[in-house]
Simulated assay, not measured.
Amino acid sequence: MSFDSGDSTERLLSLEEIKAHEKETLQVLWQYCRKHKIRMWLAYGSLLGAVRHKDLIPWDDDIDVVMLADDYFQLIELLKETNGFIDDRYRFVCSAIDSRCPVSWGKVIDTHTLVEEEILDIDSIPSLNGLWVDIFPLYGVHKQKFIQKGATTVSDFLYLLMRIACWKRLPGIGKRGQLVASIFGRFAKRIGYAAFAKSLELWLKFCFPTTKKARSVFCSARPEREFPIALFQKSIPLVLGNRKYPAPANYDTMLTMMYGDYRTIPPVEERVYHPMKAWLLK
């Protein structure tokens, strides 16, 4: 990424300022979803933070929500009309709206900010790479296990190529991932991360059943972990900062599936950090 942080029109943000901007982005997303009757839930570290800390995890600096894929596609169709812009500051991006999008899920971007992630080598564009809230669609699981396995094998491969194409280094991808990187690394970078993100998004949309007909759902970033769709039939409000957002009513089951003993705060050496810098654009 090329970015001149010494430009007088930008100001480097502190961690607390980053969190404040992200929580404001979450609020904008939630207001829009509520207006259009689109369901969403706090998820992953953000859900864990709301349950354990009533806020973001103290050492974390991003926000995740999930939507059932049917709701996610409805959100895309609504925002295509405005090129993703919810208002003049906040923009929803995904490959279906902006072909330059570096990931296969959705993000709501604060376009008045710009982010530099230490591990990523992607284009520095505020409308694509500002502070964000991740929206992970949950796709339906095939009833036949062999079909699900075959389909997710393809999606895993596309996901890995997407990541290889935009990573500066390859963290925690295991021996199989390292082998794929050694064979396809140059090819992936030549094709570009955006092409793989688009291909993966299309594959997921057309290859998996609608969530209305599915008994279980999965996230493409972790296809081996399937959640009963019944977890999302009821919602409860949870406090995150000074506002409330919907969470699965049976969040204990979801968090236990993901983290095991999630109420115990991990020691410092086991905490996962997200190294990045963010600037406020004037």
Rank of each mutant, 00 (worst) to 15 (best):
N83W: 15
G140L: 08
W30D: 14
Q178F: 04
K198N: 04
R176D: 10
Q27M: 15
P126K: 04
A165L: 03
P248C: 02
N250S: 10
K244I: 01
P275D: 03
E269H: 14
G84I: 09
A20P: 00
D261A: 09
G106D: 00
D88R: 02
A151M: 13
E226T: 13
Y32H: 10
C207A: 15
F232L: 01
D55Q: 04
T82P: 00
T153C: 09
S104V: 03
A43Q: 07
R169H: 14
M1C: 06
K168L: 07
R176E: 14
L26S: 06
G174T: 06
T82Y: 14
R225W: 04
S46C: 07
I119K: 08
F184Y: 12
L280C: 05
T153R: 12
G260A: 03
I265P: 00
K277Q: 13
H36F: 08
F227K: 00
K213C: 09
T210C: 14
L170Y: 15
P275E: 04
D70Q: 04
H274T: 14
K244G: 00
H274V: 14
L56I: 12
G6H: 15
I164L: 04
M40G: 11
R176N: 09
I191T: 06
R100Q: 11
V154Q: 00
A20W: 01
L158F: 05
I18L: 08
V66A: 09
C101N: 10
T9R: 15
D87T: 02
E77V: 09
M258K: 03
S104P: 01
W59D: 06
